[in-house]
Design a protein around this nucleic acid. Sequence first.
DNA 1: AATGAATGAGCCTTCATTCAT
DNA 2: TATGAATGAAGGCTCATTCAT
Lengths: 194, 194, 194, 194
Amino acid sequence: MSEKSDSKKKYIIEKATEVFAAKGFRSVTMKDIVEACDISRGGLYLYYSSTEEIFKDVCEAQDESDAENKDISSFLAQAKAADLLLWFVKEQKKAILRRKDSLVTARFEYAFYNKEKGNIKEAKYTFDTAVTVLKTILIRGNESGEFECADPENTALNMMYTIEGMKACSSTFGLSEKKVDSELLFMIDQFIEA
Amino acid sequence: MSEKSDSKKKYIIEKATEVFAAKGFRSVTMKDIVEACDISRGGLYLYYSSTEEIFKDVCEAQDESDAENKDISSFLAQAKAADLLLWFVKEQKKAILRRKDSLVTARFEYAFYNKEKGNIKEAKYTFDTAVTVLKTILIRGNESGEFECADPENTALNMMYTIEGMKACSSTFGLSEKKVDSELLFMIDQFIEA
Amino acid sequence: MSEKSDSKKKYIIEKATEVFAAKGFRSVTMKDIVEACDISRGGLYLYYSSTEEIFKDVCEAQDESDAENKDISSFLAQAKAADLLLWFVKEQKKAILRRKDSLVTARFEYAFYNKEKGNIKEAKYTFDTAVTVLKTILIRGNESGEFECADPENTALNMMYTIEGMKACSSTFGLSEKKVDSELLFMIDQFIEA
Amino acid sequence: MSEKSDSKKKYIIEKATEVFAAKGFRSVTMKDIVEACDISRGGLYLYYSSTEEIFKDVCEAQDESDAENKDISSFLAQAKAADLLLWFVKEQKKAILRRKDSLVTARFEYAFYNKEKGNIKEAKYTFDTAVTVLKTILIRGNESGEFECADPENTALNMMYTIEGMKACSSTFGLSEKKVDSELLFMIDQFIEA
DNA sequence: AATGAATGAGCCTTCATTCAT
DNA sequence: TATGAATGAAGGCTCATTCAT
């Protein structure tokens, strides 16, 4: 179950990602994935025993690939606030646009599904973390004179709501990259002058 | 199928609303609704033949009750922009908080479900309409000197994204009324001075 | 679910009895019963949701039909010990021979199955009750001078072991009625003289 | 397939014995045995291709170890009838009590399973042989004046039924050694007089 | 209109068995 | 010999949907 089976798992995750991207979370069945992978029913169960289990790995895989260049610690320490903001906004943009090729829809559904089951902590944690990071960036920018943001706390929160809204819109009816860029610029312009 | 059956439909929608509020959209079965209504399997099929059909009526019923006092045409014509904005924001607030007692979760799921099936028009239409209304209000406010909003178009769009984001957050991990108020005030303060 | 469904249940039990008689307990599947009843998979689940549930009713039905003429209370009070013994032995004989047309095999298997699951009380209770009844009969016979049994307690126990052994033999390789009669007579002759 | 594979077979039988003792016959799967032996699926099939095949060897192994000191031919010829009876009864006692640590349950199940398949001969043969042996012992005892048994044929049969009954009871709800001893003594006392 | 028994399709899960290595 | 991944058949269960009453 090590090398070989790991590559098989990778393969399953790859195929399953397409399925979840196309059908969301709830309506995906083990059968769907079996068919997408073109393996046997029993074969899939060798590796995973529920769509939820698969979906978790699918998300993890995506998060990891997203995080590839995110060895941020040193970056966060040294960079200028404006660079940090740029990086943050780019990350969010990716998350917003990710919907087309991917999983935001399924992630939403999964969040709802989990809420039904009572696990809502993770979503909130992710959101709150993002707010905190953004606030920190804004404060740093204020200190360095790069930004002029009267209320970093509420501005950070407002921006994150806006970003979440774009994700939702991107998920439900789609957003062009141009629209996303435009909106992100509009947000930033509020406290970056010159 | 007129009077009597209408009241029966009303009854079904009433009960079904509870079911959708509790379970979202996708996981609701005809059986769930039959049981909630305490009618016969066949009986339900006399009125509706799928959960989707029922859900559409459920949403419509809710929208109508929301819109009861929305005979806006004349209101829009006469009122001051500040009043209109207030009304608009209040409506959105209701929509955001509606999640607790109700259907936002199911609506999201349904939106995803529809996207799969290719009907994304409605969601986009609703969003665009809201943006347009808001933009109109902002422009009117500018003209009357009530507001000072440099870019009504983008501001309206930004506000709607933010509001959609709050809906999403409210749906996934919950938002207190206080937080919603605070955020809405923050948005408005940008172009209302003193 | 009352009259009509009761008759349906009766029908299922009837057919299931044949299945259990032919295949024992463990190897019987819901599918077997569905096929024996010539109803649909879902149809069976309307009435029963496991073979164990069905088997319990099958046993109960058989026990009831066995017990039809067992309104014993008054009989036990008045009858002569010899009559009681005769009755007791006849009942046991029926139980022994029952195997051919029926369920002893399945009952054994079920007992084992239950033992695995830890419920062994019932079997022991049934056995102990029979021993007690038999002992009572023997004592009564001694008192009335009908029997001459030096050790009613151990004799009763011995007889019940013997009877259980005949059941087992009947189950595994079959016993003719003649052999059963012969053995039962042999047992009784020990304490009935003249 | 000779030495090495024989020791492997022995190992498998050893482990499988535990499995059958714990789970009976029918519910044991090849998977259970694979896991108990900690070998590969394919590895097991090199030696055995069904649980039935394994079970036969398991039984045989146990029977052999039971029979180790049963080189009876000469013993039967010379010994006194009382000694023979003692030996016979001890063997049966072992068989009765064997249930605790072992396979009687599985053997019963297997007997039922075989009956379905039509092979009931073996069980009957074993029983009949035991009856014959016992009858022979009783006759010898009568001749030597050790016993006083009016009807050796029926007495032997009766004793074997009783013993089968104890096996069944031991299997289904358990019997203490004390109870077994007491019953066996009771049986013998009938024709052994001080 | 209304009932609810009945059907059958669809998905889930577990194993016996095979086979390339 | 030995491995264990892979297959596919078999049986379990749940619903959407129909239909005789």
